[in-house]
């Protein structure tokens, strides 16, 4: 696969094409888009930060340094730290298999990978309760062996892995399919073994797509609410992640506190978005094949 990395020739600078609308049409359409964006996207974001600081910076930092808040932040980071690397490995393995090999049931596997996207997160959570809960299939056995999954950290990790499973694979499959097997075949014919081929040839070819997938996966892992809410049991200071902690504070009418934690979560999302945009600008060509979100 030969990639052409030259920039596309610039479009001629003519303003009277068949596809150019009249001035007032353009103004109205652009204005509509701007107003809509401001209302739906920008305003809520601004509101999150202004609400967070409503009672002053001191209260903001106090809310964040509360014991429950700190454990929630720690739990969220722990869950992401476990779920994201696992999904990175699963995602690379699955897309490697799908893009580079022909086998029976391939279409089924692709559908299966997309399942977490199509199933409501609440349902995903309930499935785990059904499997590992006290009344679930494995419940009695787990209890007998003193293993806690539901209403404990392992359940939260499992639910998060399930919900964020498709992100890496969905980024990589189309990218790897476009790239084909040529480079790998070349490496093998030159005597490289499977691992060397993966490390020196495949991985460099997919690294930006992979990073992009990991960023999206991470954003979702930190922000997931539905599935985690079902399996967590909302034990304060023990099984509440950041989104769950925000909900608890909100339900207790501690709006400023809720928004303080929410602003932190929003910050994480913004940082992710900024990294993503920078990547897109710098490596647009390589990412073009994967742009689906």
């Amino acid at each position: 696969m030969v990639y052409d990395s030259r920039p596309a020739p610039a479009a001629p600078d003519i303003h009277s094409g068949a596809t150019t609308e009249r001035l007032w049409v353009r103004v109205v359409l652009v204005a509509l888009a701007v107003v809509f964006m401001a209302l739906v996207l920008v305003m809520p974001l601004v509101l999150v930060f202004s609400e967070a600081f409503r009672k002053g910076a001191e209260f903001f930092f106090k809310s964040l340094s509360q014991r429950d808040a700190v454990t929630a932040i720690q739990l969220t980071l722990t869950v992401a730290a476990i779920a994201v690397p696992l999904n990175l490995v699963f995602g690379v393995a699955a897309s490697w298999a799908i893009a580079k090999f022909e086998f029976k049931g391939k279409a089924f596997l692709i559908t299966l990978i997309d399942l977490p996207f199509s199933v409501s997160p609440v349902v995903s959570g309930l499935v785990y309760v059904l499997l590992f809960g006290a009344q679930g299939y494995f419940g009695p056995w787990l209890k007998a062996n003193d293993i806690e999954i539901i209403f404990a950290v392992p359940g939260i990790v499992l639910a998060t892995i399930f919900v964020t499973f498709p992100f890496v694979a969905r980024e990589l499959i189309p990218l790897m399919q476009v790239q084909g097997n040529g480079d790998e075949e070349a490496a093998l014919s030159l005597g490289a073994n499977g691992w060397q081929t993966f490390w020196h040839v495949t991985l460099p070819n997919i690294k930006w797509g992979l990073l992009y997938g990991v960023l999206l996966c991470n954003a979702r892992a930190m922000g997931e609410f539905g599935a985690v809410s079902v399996v967590s049991g909302h034990i304060r200071g023990k099984t509440t992640t950041m989104p769950l902690h925000i909900e608890i504070l909100y339900n207790e009418y501690n709006f400023a506190g809720a928004f303080a934690v929410a602003s932190l979560l929003a910050m994480l999302a913004l940082v992710t978005l900024i990294i993503k945009t920078v990547l897109e600008l710098r490596f647009g060509d390589e990412l073009a094949a994967t742009r689906r979100h």
Binding site: M1, G182, E185, A186, S189, G191, P204
Partner: peptide, 20 residues
């Protein structure tokens, strides 16, 4: 033998040079 052990020099149609 596998392709690795056959020790053949193969030039691919699209060259398959390693871009990185």
């Amino acid at each position: 033998k596998t392709v690795q052990d056959r020790n053949v020099g193969f030039v691919f149609q699209a060259y398959a040079l390693f871009r990185n």
